[in-house]
Amino acid sequence: MFSTFDFSVLSPSLPFLWTGIQYSFKLTLIAMSGGIILGTFLALARLSPNRVLANAAATYVDTMRSIPLVMVILWFFLLIPLLTGNPVGAESSAMLTFTAFEAAYYSEIMRAGIQSVSRGQVAAGDALGFTYGQTMGYIVLPQAFRNMIPVLLTQTIVLFQDTSLVYIIGAKDLLKAAEIAGKNYNRPIEMYIFAAVIYFVVCFTLSQTVKRLQKRVAIIR
């Protein structure tokens, strides 16, 4: 059965596949950092006593969470050129999309994290005469962030898997690169298997790391 498979096509196409892998990682890292920052602000907005702000943030998060990511990717790819008047490449469009989309998911995690910090901590900040920004920045957020590191990382693993969906607008990520290489060498089967193996190795390693981390963080709490 395996005699018909030819994995020797991998080595000449590796440099090309590597560009795809790099893009997948770059997209993941940008969307993760952007998403966590934006998500933290969304979580703060959602928890703020200002009703208008809280409702706006809640609507944004809930909307993003009830639409398939593929549709969000299509929406951004359609709207960005219309709104800015300039054509935008699939690669940069995907970065904006993923940051905006993942922010909704990260914000739910950060909200749970902020709520896991006991109320006394906020009161302590008040007692020290801290402003709201200082209380959040120096007391609440560092603890919330630390408590939520395993969950944030798990979400990042999901994010890394989701980056494969840029396929729909043709951005050249790991999967697309594998597909193109498969077409060029007329070996699509081997290339799909290669892509699947890379995704599995990265995600499995990361999820095992998170598991170990979870135990360490759990002791601190």
Binding site: Q161, S164, L175, I189, Y192, I193, A196, Y199, S207
Partner: peptide, 14 residues
């Protein structure tokens, strides 16, 4: 640990 899209393609082509 494998993206759903990749799994789709695996089931369909591989």
């Amino acid at each position: 640990n494998v993206p759903l899209l990749v799994q789709m393609l695996l089931w369909f082509f591989v």
